[in-house]
Write a protein that binds this DNA or RNA. Sequence first.
RNA 1: UGGGGCGUAGCCAAGCGGUAAGGCAGCGGGUUUUGAUCCCGUCAUUCCUAGGUUCGAAUCCUAGCGCCCCAGCCA
Length: 565
Amino acid sequence: MSESSGPGNFIRTIIDEDLAAGRTAGRVVTRFPPEPNGYLHIGHAKSICLNFGLAQDYGGVCNLRFDDTNPLTEEHEYVASIEQDVRWLGFDWGERRFHASDYFERLYEFAVRLIGKGSAFVCDLSHDEVRDARGTLTRPGRPSPYRDRPVQENLALFARMRAGDFPDGSRTLRARIDMASPNLNLRDPVIYRIRRAPHYRTGDAWCIYPSYDWAHGQSDYIEGVTHSICTLEFQDHRPLYEWFLEQLDAQPRPRQIEFARLNLAYAVMSKRLLQQLVRERVVSGWDDPRMPTLSGLRRRGVTPEAIRQFCAGIGVAKADSLVDMGFLESCIRKDLEPATPRVMCVHDPLRVVLTNWPQDRVLELEAPYFPDESGRQGTRLVPLSRELFIEREDFMEDPPKGFFRLSPGGEVRLRRAYVIRCDEVLKDAAGTPVELRCSVDLETLNAAPVGRKVRGIIHWVSARHALPAQVRLYDRLFAVPNPTGDKEGDFKRHLNPDALQVLAGAMAEPSLAAARPGERYQFERKGFYFVDPLDAAPGKPVFNRIVTLRDTWARLQDQQGPPGA
RNA sequence: UGGGGCGUAGCCAAGCGGUAAGGCAGCGGGUUUUGAUCCCGUCAUUCCUAGGUUCGAAUCCUAGCGCCCCAGCCA
């Protein structure tokens, strides 16, 4: 069993069988094959954890291989981000960083062998003609008129394709398989196309580029990959994958295994759509904390450990699924809960005046960073003075049954401080409370009030000492579980307008002036927060909400219907 | 109407002919100076449906039904 790829899944079963049958000489070699045309997202994390996790567990290796066969869309910027993300997630490919483009020469030689066997031919059909001849799902295709070109002629033409004798798109090299196959992938698929585009690694060394189907399996073979794990949409390609290997008498042969890609509720997981959000400035970038990208999750403050636990927890199978966002949140909380220091920050301040507290008195309370029962050490000083801020939602003039925070005449405990009673409510012209006049029970510091029970505990911050802070509340990017579910219509109309809420007047306890970029805190009763590594300045922290705390009260309220509705 | 896959709880997911793991969510209770955490308990007489084989079926067979993928010189 492993942390990263989970217990018994069907892929492990296959590997166990292969090992038992001696099919791979005891070796397990996997690979993670991103195309450097976008940023990695949590769906890729599933694949990374699977591939690297399997290699770890079976004492094998996992290659990082850039599947860079399409120079039009690939850029170095992406390979840098991909490497950073994989490393951040906690995996190490050692020296085993490869590129499909490393194999261009060998791939070319392989293609020559295919031609030599009469298994590939140069086709002069145009793009449209190829499409027309391919047939449909229910009707077989027609053979290309160039299908029976003599081997020598194919060889000469292919060499000239490489030499740049023909214009882009004018010719292709095609495998010679079966135009009547019910599997469209076997209807003489294109394996080389002419494309005069500079490649980010090979520059203008090539004007022909191999297709995915041709490059991928052969790259697996070259690298000695034993188990080539990909997503479900490639199942139909497996016969082609195997056909190529067979044509080349490849030995030993890698085996392709497909699993279901990750879908996360209230998110989109397609590079194309994520790219669109970035390009159209719907989000601030690939690392916008609302994005399901690894860079976005990192910027939000999610830990790699939480993502690994998530990937281990969702399992690996072949059934399409839509994983509950709540599960990711649960993994994040679980990872953050034990070791994240607790502090106080009021998001929406309501002024409280402690009428029986001397004007100038400041009491420095030594407050532990962790729950008393956790056994963890560490404290900070929290000043208490006559005027405070409390959370506006922690006061209700006319509270529903079961509300045990503050209300007129009611009592509540200030977290790690005294019990106070609300004696008077001051309101503005619109009737909105602007200030609460409260009295302190001076007997209640570290002691229970006598003769009554005070159930509620609220967080607070001394007004005079409060540190204004920017707090960014993040929520799910989309308002519906499956934004791309309906075929028609723009997925962007399902965007959640409240996915980002920037708090204007949040007030943090003064100890947070020392918060350093990249640190995580729990704001008690609120959630876990991350000091934004880019936007925070010394003494001016910016907090990203990573995830809220579980909130049983809010849930009960929701069940009762929204208040005032 | 072609081919390839997949259907086990609200969401994931084990299970591989011997009588339905686990996690998330939910529900009930306990502890608690975070309505958090933690702890205890509960949550599928049934596995898409219908037949069949078998002493015994989620697992095997047959027939349906539903969902996903494939007609890029993308990956």
